[in-house]
Design a binder for these strands. Sequence first.
DNA 1: TCAATAGTGTCTCTTAGACAATATCGC
DNA 2: GCGATATTGTCTAAGAGACACTATTGA
Lengths: 261, 261
Amino acid sequence: MDKKENSETINPLIDGHLHYLHNVSVDNVIFGYHEKELKVLLQRPQGMAKWQLPGGYIKRTETIGEAARRIAEARTGLTELYLEQFRSFGTPRRTEDEDFTPELLSKVSGFKVPADFWMFDYFVSVGFYTLTEFSRVKPNGDFYMEECEWWPVSELPEMVFDHLEMIKEALKTLRVHIYHHPIGYELLPEKFTLQDIHALYETILDRKLDSRNFTKKLLTTGIIIKLGEQKKMKGHRYPFLYMFDKDKYENALKEMMVLVV
Amino acid sequence: MDKKENSETINPLIDGHLHYLHNVSVDNVIFGYHEKELKVLLQRPQGMAKWQLPGGYIKRTETIGEAARRIAEARTGLTELYLEQFRSFGTPRRTEDEDFTPELLSKVSGFKVPADFWMFDYFVSVGFYTLTEFSRVKPNGDFYMEECEWWPVSELPEMVFDHLEMIKEALKTLRVHIYHHPIGYELLPEKFTLQDIHALYETILDRKLDSRNFTKKLLTTGIIIKLGEQKKMKGHRYPFLYMFDKDKYENALKEMMVLVV
DNA sequence: TCAATAGTGTCTCTTAGACAATATCGC
DNA sequence: GCGATATTGTCTAAGAGACACTATTGA
């Protein structure tokens, strides 16, 4: 446990209102990719039927980005996540939900939670998204979380509040993003095959990409470099390994280059 | 005064804490364009030397978008503004400023403002931007505003808090935006000349665009349509008038078309 | 006819996008 | 040799981008 974990001595139900900002929170859409599957990390609190995004409150001493990171790290165990803010959500009754009531909270926590408890107030939520290899992640719940799991983006469970809309919005942002940023850089191993990166893009964009044109584009822009090595596999020809060219990729960002067609 | 103006019976210094959300606010970057000039609408509160963005608090009964619109309408008098959220800003000490203190607020307002007044708390601000014809706008201040004026984006005055960063960020978003949205639609008169739209794009992007290629692109994509009419002007050939093709333009949005090169 | 601005056409070069045959591996 | 997957080249059409001359108007 590092120093950040001191924060966990705050019990939101007892002294949360003193340490956290009111009326504003963060929610993370944590995308996980692994072998042609795109998933989202969701949690289900004790006593609730619906799932939710890993989100939380902002401490008075931290930035919104730090809050998002703290929460994302707690759920994934990963410290190198690249979080990107995508939008804020603010509608007066957005957090009213039959699955989020004083009665339920009281029952689960053992504390007497009043109806006008600060948590039931109007909260504006700042949305962040990130993308990681989901095989590296062991989803961590906490005391209040009954489950914490990866869900395929194509088969999401029923969600509380406006969290489904948030996921859709984050996915839209990710898909626009992928045209201008070498997403794979954060996601693929240092050395990867053409099939790896090809499958990644096809999965995220949810459409077929011609492998000849895709390869051609990545190579002529110089974003990736072919290495001498090949990956040993069984039963067929060995694929070559590639890596990103960091300089070219920084440049691509600046010039608003379109990376995939 | 329409019904919305009832809200103005809230005096932020007296009962603001009851009607507004705490720890979260909105700020608007209102861009104004007119004859090759791009400006931003700024205000300077009484007793302060620095300028600020027209921003404010969010009522418990409105969405963040409605709050942004209410504030933008109050300053511009325009009701048809298209506001776009671009980013939220949240850093613990972002609103600490020598120009924003209890003493100063007390002096200006005549109320005794305590040091721990809610307004001095950590506020996360949701940033919106919009773009309008600035000749249509008569900047309106209010009781607390000593000045409310248009400033050229290239010569901004000293600004309070992180508002300069917000403007830069909004401008960056606008410039990316202009590649994928027919910005002029919100901004130019229904019928306009090629020079009008050409100058608009050059001004916003702050660079020269070859008029032949620019015209060609707009016409071959079909985004704009040439009308039979010409605009009567003195001393030289009459320019033709054009208008946007709404269908083509909706399509351009969907297909992520690049509108200007 | 002059001053001022409007309006256009051509050429080159790059690249998007469609398309399928050949090469290597283990067995 | 077979099954499986990897790798790669060509063609066409569209468009980006460079470039400068002619047309209209009022005075």
